[in-house]
Design a protein around this nucleic acid. Structure first.
Lengths: 211, 211
DNA sequence: GTCATTATGTATCATCCGATACAATAAAAA
DNA sequence: TTTTTATTGTATCGGATGATACATAATGAC
């Protein structure tokens, strides 16, 4: 068994608490005092466990991905591309809007550090967002291959579009947009979605209703 | 005439230089040293002219609006709602992508401070973004009244959607997306746009080509 | 010219930042 | 028990941060 004095706190609990701080204040806005206070540990414990502030942040990002994996798996399990798009965007709408509880409004991967004095932080966030986009793109490529997307559809652009709408919704959520407002955006965003000829039913009418 | 020693630097030039710093490093990432060095002035000059760091930032935001007013006027002068949407998004695509010159990639109003230790900064940014959204919404309300948008269309949602796509594109641009990638997103985003019955020409086909 | 007023450059402030030194503590290993 | 290893709490480090004090310089007012 592992020797030495056992750690006196739960890593995941501490990461969850740190996540909230980074989420609300951003990477640079979150001070070590903010973090240690929220995590209920002293600085040496933090540094022993995570190396430094950036190490903690990266651990938080991993924890974030882990916490959202189930949701993402659920999205990717949808029967066709448009269902994937809908589930994803609706999920973001519910998740990013201020639900007075669980999480601060918005998305950690967007608002915790788009710009920083240390460029590695924005880069790390971009990489995590890119992984999500990649998962969507690969799913859409399979859909296209299997006829659940028109051959004229471009999976790369679809994934990029989806991420753009999702990230934009997160920006709005961080500014206080309600879940209802975001769901309205989702409906409109999905009106742009291409469907195979055989599934298409009066797209013009559909377009009107969606708006 | 105004008494006292005349100011030895140009306010607007200094604001432009400060803007670049805030843009690249964010509000909290931009240190006073960064700012005074870029602005080529000493701290007392900065404080005399702008009060404090937040005052400088707010002045930069005003300067930003002023610099983009022509572009926005041009967008709002478009003949119909869809043209407005297209001009706006295409403008963002060109402007936000890294053009190796003028500005850092992305948009100041998005990335300079979505989260901060001082909540007033995100609030100020949100307010500036909301003004742009308001201008679009009011334009779309007129379009709807005058039949350039279907009566079933909702100007509020359209403006919200447009801002979401634009802000999302800015997030991607900040992460290094090219103008080409952003233009592809724009094309797809516009496929969701409602047009009056009489202007509609085979939307299904159009949808395919756009993707 | 002299005064009042404003801006400038130098040098520095108090505070907070991220990060550690160090001794005490708690477990496994010997 | 003793040794080894790792974590903890206290107290503090050097440096950067945002912000100023103060003397000097440059203008208009008189």
């Amino acid at each position: 068994m592992r020797t030495g004095r056992p750690r006196g706190f739960c890593i995941d609990t501490a990461l969850d608490r740190a996540m909230t701080v980074f989420w609300k204040k951003g990477y640079e806005g979150a001070s070590l005092s903010d973090l240690t206070e929220a995590m209920e540990i002293n600085p040496p414990s933090l540094y022993a466990a995570f190396g430094n502030k950036e190490g903690l942040f990266r651990a938080v990002l991993e924890r974030y991905d882990a916490r959202r994996k189930d949701l993402m798996d659920n999205v990717l399990a949808a029967p066709d591309a448009k269902s994937v798009a809908r589930l994803y965007l609706e999920g973001v709408a519910e998740f990013a809007a201020d639900t007075e509880g669980r999480n601060p409004p918005g998305c950690l991967l967007v608002q915790s550090g788009l710009s920083c004095s240390d460029q590695e932080i924005p880069d790390a966030l971009a990489q995590h967002r890119a992984e999500k986009e990649k998962a969507l793109r690969e799913r859409f490529e399979r859909d296209r291959k299997d006829g659940r997307l028109p051959k004229t559809a471009n999976p790369t652009i679809l994934a990029s579009y989806l991420m753009a709408v999702a990230n934009g919704m997160c920006v709005q959520a961080a500014a206080g947009a309600s879940a209802k407002e975001l769901r309205d955006v989702v409906e409109l965003a999905l009106a742009a979605w291409p469907v195979p000829e055989e599934n298409r039913k009066k797209p013009a009418k559909k377009l009107q209703r969606a708006v």
